[in-house]
Write a protein that binds this DNA or RNA. Structure first.
Length: 426
RNA sequence: GGAGGAGUGGCCGAGUGGUCUAAGGCAGCGGUUUUGAAAACCGCCGUGGGGCAACCCACCAGGGGUUCGAAUCCCUUCUCCUCCGCCA
């Protein structure tokens, strides 16, 4: 969410952000609603002022004066009752529009429409040249008995799966490797709730635009989160943080649930795009200072890269163009891991700065050194998301016989195994 | 799930229908004093909105109601505490 006075004073900037982020909200509607709201508020407040005035005069008035004042008070009350529903409707329209106004992308973000306009920053590691025909993760995992495909798709629906045996251990291994790496780097691990109220979804910017993407537990008015960013940011909703305690850095570990509503029929093979997955997510709260936020942003990116290095996965880093960054994001880097079966670098991590966009919606403030308050800045980045990360891990580390090389960093979490072999599958 | 109690500014806390325009304390900010710091003293000090300004409006967990007037009374939702029940 942006500040309305900022929007009024920077109409062109906001208009450009809407166009560049390819959103369809109409800024003129908002400006009109704002004008209407202020006009209506002026009228309403004048009546309320009179109401308050009468209420304060009555106790001091003589017995003779009172009846007339009470009569006027009643009239004023009737007037208020007539004005208030209109005011509520105007305010509702204004608020609905405000929730759809994006944050302003930072200057370094390239203007563009889609993925093809993202700008590659660097490639790390070298794509492996196979001396044999590499298998994809579906074949590899099936041979290693790492996954049960058919059962879940029958009883739980499309895009469902069950990780079994070494598959289950491997997901826990990459998860634990990521958590341990982050804890060593000063992040505080959190196992948060994944079932949340609407306020948390709106407060973090996923609603109203992403409503179709979330599972709704209708009977209890709760939603399953698509990322632990939602509960982690909400952890400090309605709080005033002390600047001395910042930055706060969390490592959230959770299951994530996504309906993939706009992706019907897309990436249906294997474990690339699924409805439920496990993710370790980094979330940071810092003071509202662009330089500090930038430093934190690159630290988060560095943490993700350190994990990929331990997993020995080749990847590239790109800065996402305006058309590819979300409503609240002011800057986003994607980390894309090399996936041999897709013959492409595909997204496994997403590192974002949101400025005070989420903090305004969630009412997260900071008390600064001079005693004043301001909205905090928030940032987040994936550390590891599984099973998607298993795709580059298994495909890049496969041997001709279908066995899998285990990078040393992962071995302590896999009973010391250096190789996973189909013949030893559990 | 049942019964009872509670929710007031960054924090603690007073306030049971009318100068509440929310006491007081702590914390914070500015100053005096000091070699420096602490202490003491003086001043400032909730958030948001409207207005050039004087000033006005809203907010006492959320929503609704009663009243000329609500932090205060009523209904409802949420959260916390105590006890009981059920359950991992």
């Amino acid at each position: 969410m942006l500040e309305i006075s900022f929007i009024r004073q920077n109409v062109d900037l906001v208009r450009a952000a809407i166009a560049n982020k390819r959103l369809d909200v109409n800024l003129d509607d908002l400006l009109e609603a704002d004008k209407e709201r202020r006009d209506a508020m002026g009228k309403l407040e004048a009546v309320r002022a009179r109401k308050n005035e009468i209420a304060s005069i009555i106790p001091k008035a003589s017995k003779e004066e009172r009846p007339a004042l009470i009569e006027e008070g009643k009239a004023v009350k009737t007037q208020l009752e007539q004005l208030e529903p209109g005011m509520a409707a105007i305010a509702k329209r204004y608020e609905d529009l405000m929730l759809r106004i994006p944050s302003i992308p930072r200057p370094e973000v390239p203007v563009g429409k889609g993925e093809e306009d993202n700008v590659e920053i660097r490639k790390v590691g070298t794509k492996r040249e196979f001396a044999f025909k590499p298998k994809d993760h579906v074949e590899l995992m099936t041979a290693l008995k790492m996954v049960n495909w058919d059962g879940p798709r029958q009883f739980a629906g499309g895009r469902s799966y069950a990780l079994t045996g070494l598959g289950a251990l491997l997901e826990m291994a990459v998860t634990r490797l990521a958590v341990d790496t982050l804890v060593e780097r000063g992040l505080n691990p959190v196992l948060p709730p994944v079932l949340v109220r609407e306020r948390a979804m709106t407060g973090t910017g996923f609603f109203p635009l992403g409503r179709e993407e979330a599972y709704n537990i209708g009977a209890d008015d709760l939603f399953l989160v698509g990322t632990s960013e939602v509960p982690l940011v909400s952890l400090h909703a309605d709080q005033v943080l002390d600047a001395k305690d910042l930055p706060i850095r969390y490592a959230g570990i959770s299951n994530c649930f996504r309906r993939e509503a706009g992706a019907a029929g897309k990436d249906t093979r294997g474990l690339y795009r699924v409805h439920q997955f496990t993710k370790v997510e980094q979330v940071v709260f810092c003071v509202p200072d662009e330089a500090v936020a930038e430093e934190e942003h690159y630290k988060l990116l560095g943490n993700a890269e350190a994990i990929l290095a331990k997993l020995e996965i080749p990847y590239r880093v790109a800065i996402a163009c305006t058309g590819e960054i979300g409503l609240g994001q002011t800057r986003k880097h994607e980390v894309e891991s090399w996936m041999p079966s897709r013959e492409a670098y595909s997204e496994t991590h997403s590192c974002s700065t949101l400025g005070d966009f989420q903090a305004r919606r969630s009412n997260i403030r900071v008390r600064l050194a001079d005693g004043s308050t301001a909205f905090a800045y928030t940032l987040n980045n994936t550390a590891v998301a599984s099973p998607r990360i298993l795709i580059p891990l298994l495909e890049n580390h496969q041997n001709e016989d279908g066995s899998i090389y285990v990078p040393p960093a992962l071995r302590p979490y896999l009973f010391g195994r250096e190789v996973l072999r189909p013949s030893e599958a559990i």
